[in-house]
Protein backbone atom coordinates (compact mmCIF):
# COMPACT_ATOMS: atom_id res chain seq x y z
CA UNK A 1 0.00 0.00 0.00
CA UNK A 2 1.26 3.45 -0.87
CA UNK A 3 2.13 5.68 2.01
CA UNK A 4 1.03 9.27 1.54
CA UNK A 5 4.21 10.95 2.67
CA UNK A 6 7.43 9.24 1.78
CA UNK A 7 10.86 10.72 1.39
CA UNK A 8 11.86 14.30 2.09
CA UNK A 9 9.44 17.14 2.87
CA UNK A 10 9.36 20.23 0.65
CA UNK A 11 11.44 22.12 3.20
CA UNK A 12 13.99 19.31 3.37
CA UNK A 13 14.20 19.36 -0.44
CA UNK A 14 14.70 23.13 -0.40
CA UNK A 15 17.46 22.71 2.21
CA UNK A 16 19.23 20.11 0.05
CA UNK A 17 19.17 22.53 -2.90
CA UNK A 18 20.41 25.39 -0.75
CA UNK A 19 23.32 23.27 0.51
CA UNK A 20 24.45 22.72 -3.09
CA UNK A 21 24.73 26.46 -3.81
CA UNK A 22 28.27 27.72 -3.12
CA UNK A 23 29.19 30.97 -1.40
CA UNK A 24 29.17 33.92 -3.80
CA UNK A 25 26.63 32.47 -6.23
CA UNK A 26 24.03 34.46 -8.16
CA UNK A 27 20.75 32.55 -8.10
CA UNK A 28 17.35 32.95 -9.74
CA UNK A 29 14.44 31.26 -7.96
CA UNK A 30 11.27 30.20 -9.77
CA UNK A 31 7.76 30.53 -8.40
CA UNK A 32 6.45 28.09 -5.74
CA UNK A 33 8.66 25.47 -4.05
CA UNK A 34 11.86 27.08 -5.42
CA UNK A 35 11.09 30.18 -3.34
CA UNK A 36 11.64 28.07 -0.18
CA UNK A 37 15.32 27.65 -1.09
CA UNK A 38 16.02 31.23 0.03
CA UNK A 39 15.08 30.25 3.60
CA UNK A 40 17.85 27.65 3.84
CA UNK A 41 20.99 29.30 2.47
CA UNK A 42 23.59 28.45 5.17
CA UNK A 43 24.47 31.48 7.28
CA UNK A 44 28.17 31.36 6.44
CA UNK A 45 27.44 31.85 2.72
CA UNK A 46 26.60 35.05 0.85
CA UNK A 47 24.31 34.25 -2.06
CA UNK A 48 22.67 36.96 -4.18
CA UNK A 49 19.15 36.23 -5.33
CA UNK A 50 17.99 37.62 -8.67
CA UNK A 51 14.38 38.19 -9.59
CA UNK A 52 13.77 38.69 -13.29
CA UNK A 53 11.47 41.66 -12.77
CA UNK A 54 14.49 43.76 -11.94
CA UNK A 55 16.31 43.17 -8.65
CA UNK A 56 19.60 41.62 -7.55
CA UNK A 57 19.52 41.10 -3.81
CA UNK A 58 16.10 39.75 -2.83
CA UNK A 59 15.70 39.75 0.94
CA UNK A 60 13.21 38.00 3.25
CA UNK A 61 9.47 38.51 2.95
CA UNK A 62 8.29 41.77 4.58
CA UNK A 63 6.47 41.77 7.90
CA UNK A 64 2.68 41.88 7.70
CA UNK A 65 1.64 45.49 7.07
CA UNK A 66 5.09 46.41 5.69
CA UNK A 67 4.41 45.24 2.12
CA UNK A 68 5.35 47.52 -0.77
CA UNK A 69 3.55 46.41 -3.94
CA UNK A 70 6.19 48.13 -6.07
CA UNK A 71 8.76 45.74 -4.59
CA UNK A 72 7.74 42.26 -5.70
CA UNK A 73 9.22 39.01 -7.00
CA UNK A 74 8.51 37.08 -10.20
CA UNK A 75 5.50 35.50 -8.49
CA UNK A 76 4.25 39.07 -7.85
CA UNK A 77 4.56 38.62 -4.09
CA UNK A 78 5.94 41.48 -1.93
CA UNK A 79 9.59 41.03 -0.99
CA UNK A 80 12.37 43.14 0.51
CA UNK A 81 15.73 44.24 -0.90
CA UNK A 82 18.96 43.52 0.98
CA UNK A 83 21.64 46.14 1.64
CA UNK A 84 23.73 46.31 -1.52
CA UNK A 85 20.77 45.43 -3.75
CA UNK A 86 20.24 47.07 -7.13
CA UNK A 87 17.30 47.62 -9.46
CA UNK A 88 17.40 47.47 -13.27
CA UNK A 89 15.08 47.29 -16.27
CA UNK A 90 13.88 44.17 -18.05
CA UNK A 91 16.35 44.16 -20.94
CA UNK A 92 19.25 44.31 -18.45
CA UNK A 93 17.64 41.64 -16.32
CA UNK A 94 17.39 39.23 -19.24
CA UNK A 95 20.89 40.15 -20.40
CA UNK A 96 22.00 38.79 -17.02
CA UNK A 97 19.94 35.66 -17.66
CA UNK A 98 20.64 35.02 -21.34
CA UNK A 99 24.18 36.31 -21.18
CA UNK A 100 25.29 33.55 -18.82
CA UNK A 101 25.90 35.76 -15.80
CA UNK A 102 23.73 33.84 -13.34
CA UNK A 103 25.10 30.68 -11.73
CA UNK A 104 21.90 28.83 -10.82
CA UNK A 105 18.20 28.84 -11.55
CA UNK A 106 15.87 26.68 -9.49
CA UNK A 107 12.64 25.85 -11.32
CA UNK A 108 9.55 23.73 -10.89
CA UNK A 109 8.54 21.28 -13.62
CA UNK A 110 5.74 19.20 -15.08
CA UNK A 111 8.20 16.78 -16.68
CA UNK A 112 11.94 16.25 -17.14
CA UNK A 113 13.27 13.80 -19.74
CA UNK A 114 16.29 11.56 -19.37
CA UNK A 115 18.26 13.80 -21.70
CA UNK A 116 17.45 16.88 -19.61
CA UNK A 117 14.57 18.29 -21.66
CA UNK A 118 12.26 20.40 -19.50
CA UNK A 119 8.50 20.91 -19.75
CA UNK A 120 7.23 23.43 -17.21
CA UNK A 121 5.04 26.04 -18.91
CA UNK A 122 2.07 24.33 -20.53
CA UNK A 123 0.16 21.07 -20.32
CA UNK A 124 -0.79 21.57 -23.97
CA UNK A 125 -4.48 21.33 -23.08
CA UNK A 126 -6.67 23.53 -25.33
CA UNK A 127 -8.41 24.93 -22.24
CA UNK A 128 -5.05 26.01 -20.80
CA UNK A 129 -4.31 29.75 -21.09
CA UNK A 130 -0.79 29.77 -22.57
CA UNK A 131 1.70 31.64 -20.39
CA UNK A 132 5.48 31.26 -20.47
CA UNK A 133 7.05 34.12 -18.53
CA UNK A 134 10.84 33.94 -18.25
CA UNK A 135 11.32 30.16 -18.11
CA UNK A 136 12.54 29.71 -21.69
CA UNK A 137 15.17 32.43 -21.25
CA UNK A 138 16.35 31.09 -17.88
CA UNK A 139 16.95 27.55 -19.13
CA UNK A 140 18.99 28.78 -22.09
CA UNK A 141 21.21 31.23 -20.28
CA UNK A 142 21.79 30.24 -16.67
CA UNK A 143 24.85 28.04 -16.05
CA UNK A 144 23.12 25.42 -13.87
CA UNK A 145 19.43 24.62 -14.21
CA UNK A 146 18.14 22.77 -11.12
CA UNK A 147 14.61 21.38 -11.05
CA UNK A 148 12.79 20.89 -7.75
CA UNK A 149 9.52 18.99 -8.05
CA UNK A 150 7.42 16.09 -6.80
CA UNK A 151 8.67 12.78 -8.19
CA UNK A 152 5.27 11.85 -9.62
CA UNK A 153 1.95 13.58 -10.25
CA UNK A 154 -0.78 13.32 -7.60
CA UNK A 155 -2.12 10.18 -9.29
CA UNK A 156 1.32 8.57 -9.31
CA UNK A 157 2.29 9.18 -12.94
CA UNK A 158 6.07 9.54 -13.29
CA UNK A 159 7.33 13.04 -14.09
CA UNK A 160 10.86 11.89 -14.91
CA UNK A 161 10.25 10.38 -18.33
CA UNK A 162 12.01 9.02 -21.40
CA UNK A 163 10.53 11.78 -23.55
CA UNK A 164 8.36 14.72 -22.44
CA UNK A 165 4.76 14.58 -23.62
CA UNK A 166 4.07 18.20 -22.65
CA UNK A 167 5.31 21.17 -24.75
CA UNK A 168 8.99 21.81 -24.07
CA UNK A 169 10.54 24.78 -22.31
CA UNK A 170 14.01 23.82 -23.50
CA UNK A 171 15.99 20.93 -24.97
CA UNK A 172 18.80 19.32 -22.89
CA UNK A 173 18.85 22.13 -20.36
CA UNK A 174 18.36 20.55 -16.90
CA UNK A 175 21.49 19.75 -14.91
CA UNK A 176 20.05 18.27 -11.69
CA UNK A 177 16.65 17.13 -10.36
CA UNK A 178 15.57 17.25 -6.70
CA UNK A 179 12.45 15.30 -5.73
CA UNK A 180 11.13 14.01 -2.41
CA UNK A 181 12.70 10.64 -3.28
CA UNK A 182 16.11 11.44 -4.73
CA UNK A 183 18.64 13.86 -6.16
CA UNK A 184 19.43 12.94 -9.76
CA UNK A 185 22.10 14.37 -12.06
CA UNK A 186 21.57 14.66 -15.80
CA UNK A 187 24.84 13.36 -17.30
CA UNK A 188 25.94 12.53 -20.85
CA UNK A 189 25.54 8.84 -19.87
CA UNK A 190 21.99 9.36 -18.59
CA UNK A 191 20.26 10.05 -15.29
CA UNK A 192 22.60 9.29 -12.40
CA UNK A 193 21.14 8.98 -8.90
CA UNK A 194 23.25 11.11 -6.59
CA UNK A 195 21.38 10.58 -3.32
CA UNK A 196 18.21 8.82 -2.21
CA UNK A 197 15.97 9.84 0.68
CA UNK A 198 16.64 7.72 3.80
CA UNK A 199 13.56 5.49 3.48
CA UNK A 200 13.84 4.93 -0.29
CA UNK A 201 15.44 1.96 -2.05
CA UNK A 202 16.47 1.45 -5.67
CA UNK A 203 13.42 -0.68 -6.52
CA UNK A 204 11.00 1.99 -5.24
CA UNK A 205 12.77 4.70 -7.19
CA UNK A 206 12.83 2.66 -10.42
CA UNK A 207 9.15 1.89 -9.94
CA UNK A 208 8.24 5.57 -9.72
CA UNK A 209 10.45 6.70 -12.61
CA UNK A 210 9.74 6.14 -16.28
CA UNK A 211 13.23 7.11 -17.44
CA UNK A 212 16.21 4.80 -17.06
CA UNK A 213 18.32 5.43 -13.95
CA UNK A 214 21.99 4.82 -13.21
CA UNK A 215 23.00 4.08 -9.62
Amino acid sequence: MDRINIGWSKDEMAKLVANDIPDGSYVNLGIGIPELVANYIPEDREVIIHTENGLLGVGPAPAHGEEDFDLINAGKKPITAIKGACFFHHADSFAMIRGGHLDFTILGAYQVSQSGDLANWSTGSPSDIPAVGGAMDLVQGVKNVFVIMSHTTKDGTPKIVKKCSYPLTGVKVVSRIYTELAIIDVTPQGLKVRLMAPDIDEATLINKTEADLLF
Binding site: E52, H90, D117, V132, G141, L168
Partner: peptide
Amino acid sequence: PQGTLAERIRCGGAGIPAFYTPTSVGTPL
Protein backbone atom coordinates in the same frame (compact mmCIF):
# COMPACT_ATOMS: atom_id res chain seq x y z
CA PRO B 1 9.08 34.56 -23.77
CA GLN B 2 9.70 37.37 -21.31
CA GLY B 3 13.34 37.98 -22.22
CA THR B 4 12.55 37.88 -25.92
CA LEU B 5 9.75 40.38 -25.32
CA ALA B 6 12.16 42.70 -23.49
CA GLU B 7 14.85 42.39 -26.16
CA ARG B 8 12.37 42.88 -29.03
CA ILE B 9 11.28 46.12 -27.37
CA ARG B 10 14.86 47.21 -26.66
CA CYS B 11 15.80 46.55 -30.29
CA GLY B 12 12.74 48.48 -31.47
CA GLY B 13 14.11 51.51 -29.68
CA ALA B 14 17.72 50.92 -30.65
CA GLY B 15 17.44 50.60 -34.43
CA ILE B 16 18.09 46.84 -34.51
CA PRO B 17 15.46 45.21 -36.73
CA ALA B 18 16.00 41.60 -35.65
CA PHE B 19 18.28 39.39 -33.59
CA TYR B 20 19.08 35.74 -32.92
CA THR B 21 18.36 34.31 -29.47
CA PRO B 22 18.73 30.81 -27.99
CA THR B 23 15.44 31.26 -26.15
CA SER B 24 12.61 28.96 -27.32
CA VAL B 25 14.77 26.76 -29.58
CA GLY B 26 13.12 23.33 -29.80
CA THR B 27 9.82 24.54 -28.32
CA PRO B 28 6.40 25.33 -29.83
CA LEU B 29 7.16 29.06 -29.59
